[in-house]
Design a binder for these strands. Structure first.
Lengths: 351, 351
DNA sequence: TTGTATGCGTTATCAT
DNA sequence: ATGATAACGCATACAA
């Protein structure tokens, strides 16, 4: 059973192989009589003909493949992003090549090489790339879009969201509720977790503005653990919160993200404290769990699906528009959105 | 800037193009002097030569691509599976082509065609395929492995786990704790959720064995909703549990999976009941969240990472072993493992 | 409007 | 041990 080719279709339809190619590609440069077109089409259907990607690619140099660099697929934040990208890609005939880096630079390196080999048509990064210069260079030959934080990189197309502002927004919200003694807890800052860092900077900036920065406590996990699943983020939240509340009086805890906030909630409940009566808690990301836990978590929405689709949109745009007519770098920034739920309330007065 | 080819490497190394091919592929049929080999290798490195996949594929018909059919990537159950598969695939030079079907049969159809076009080297299904006959046919030309439930399909390689037993195990556990009035709650059974159905069957079977089946209450969500993210499973758990507890006296609730169980926990807490003192609750899947919530959830472990790796192992095996020497169907079954945690306890006596 | 002919960059067979 | 050469299946410039 040998694979059938366009030549077989041609034979059945009684035309030449090139005519088959014209018909099947809807070639505009050539006009085909309706009758031959019909014959070719039905012959192709009858034989269940599927063009050979390799031969096609060899001529056209397009693979209809998009490489997707993901830091950690088990963190619920990313599947949402992946889903929106994948769905949109599929409807446009593109497939997603999944590259889960585990936030390790050597994996990123590995996949970058692999993607080059597979000659993907484009790459989407869901985190700040570790080799920006190299990617900039690469972006001359294939479109690359980064979904990440503001200033993740100067020279690449980026769909960003200003995490600095996210931090500010959250603190403003807490201050309006009367909170002054606030703690920020976070897992260790890896090189790829720019967002966390920026959130903290925003927080510090806002606290300073009101001369309250001496009341800010920052708890960061010391051990640089391997992050293999998001259990880590939750555990860190629990342990840091427990440690924190042993020695400090705070009226609000800000988690570096929702997962860490969940961990902290667990700790608080363990200690028999009430949220938000005794202590307010909030996170970042607005992952779906944040509206499922009790109490619902106050958080910052990052426009995940929207950004995913936009990234794919930009990619498709560059792919279609003959590739070299818009050399300028494209930057889009979303404004973070505060989502107030049940886990934050007025600061407890007496302490 | 035109792409460089093996011919360029040959020129630089001062050998013929075919020699380059021999060296780079470590061809066993031919012996190359160490000196030429060295020259070719260094020339390739110097030029940063990357072989063209299309040309290579055209000759060899291998893409080093594995299609991965996933029902719903936002359900935390799947990223774990995906991760183990992807990681193992990558170390063997294979890439994962992600196909998120949203549990819709038309998407599955769509992706199946797409995968054929991309000429993947193999396919892994993470759910019971909707077109088993077609896949059986397909499996003559490329390996297909299903990770799913026992009897998901007769004729395909399957890494299964007997969900019927899972149901039995759970009921036995609850009966040992003295529970007799038990409720099972579940989202609507779609065609692709065989596991849920089997779990329920196991539950019913075990209850019948002890003549307790008239004390079993089954709550299934009526509306066939579009499942776009796993929020659904949680919400269903909450609403069904609320409804259930309004009219019925039960001492234990079994969720169709961990997510649904979480939802039920939320409802129970809302009603001011204590887990497990007033009511026991348990789920299936042992997703990472089940050991993070308070109280920890009693559940059934499904050996997710192990099964993922095994699926990839089988695929790799079939890919390497010249493809036709083991025509028999491969079936592996894992035994479900009961994981007892805090959410189940002795049945409340007085009611 | 359709058919002929060529080349894309490999691999692999056959000479040398 | 190495080089010339013929496919692989398709797209496309050119001829008819």
């Amino acid at each position: 059973m040998k694979r059938l080719t366009s030549r077989d279709v041609a034979k059945l339809a009684g035309v030449s192989q090139s005519t088959v190619s014209f018909v099947l590609n809807n070639s505009k440069k050539v006009t085909i009589s309706d009758e031959t077109r019909e014959r070719v089409l039905s012959a192709a259907k009858q034989l269940n003909y599927v063009p050979n990607v390799f031969a096609k690619g060899l001529k056209t140099n397009v693979s209809k493949l998009i490489g997707l660099m993901v830091p950690n697929i088990t963190n619920p934040f990313y599947p949402l992003l992946i889903q929106s990208i994948e769905e949109y890609a599929a409807t446009n005939g593109y497939n997603i090549l999944l590259c889960n880096t585990h936030r390790k630079i050597e994996n990123e390196r590995f996949y970058l090489n692999l993607l080059a080999q597979k000659s993907v048509d484009g790459i989407i990064y869901l985190f700040a790339p570790s080799f920006p210069e190299e990617l900039k260079e690469l972006s001359n030959s294939l479109p690359i879009v980064v979904i990440g934080d503001r200033d993740d990189n100067k020279d690449l197309d980026t769909i960003s969201l200003d995490s600095f502002k996210s931090g500010q927004f959250m603190i403003r919200h807490l201050m309006e509720l009367g909170h002054e003694r606030i703690a920020f807890i976070s897992g260790s800052f890896t090189s790829t977790s720019l967002s966390k860092r920026k959130r903290l900077e925003g927080i510090i900036h806002e606290m300073k503005k009101h001369k309250l920065d001496k009341f800010l406590i920052i708890k960061e996990d010391a051990n640089e653990r391997e992050i293999y699943d998001s259990t880590y983020e939750i555990e860190v939240g629990t342990s840091l919160a427990l440690e924190l509340l042993k020695n400090n009086k705070v009226t609000a805890i800000v988690g570096a993200n929702d997962m860490t906030a969940f961990g902290a909630m667990t700790a608080i409940q363990k200690l028999g404290l009430k949220i938000p009566d005794d202590i307010s808690i909030c996170g970042f990301d607005n992952i779906f769990l944040s509206k499922m836990v009790i109490p619902n978590l106050t958080t910052i929405d990052n426009y995940i699906p929207q950004r995913g689709r936009l990234a794919m949109d930009i990619l498709l745009d560059k792919l279609s528009s003959s590739h070299n007519d818009m050399p300028q770098v494209c930057k889009v920034e979303y404004e973070p959105l505060l989502v107030v739920r049940e886990s934050t309330g007025p600061a407890k007065k007496n302490t």
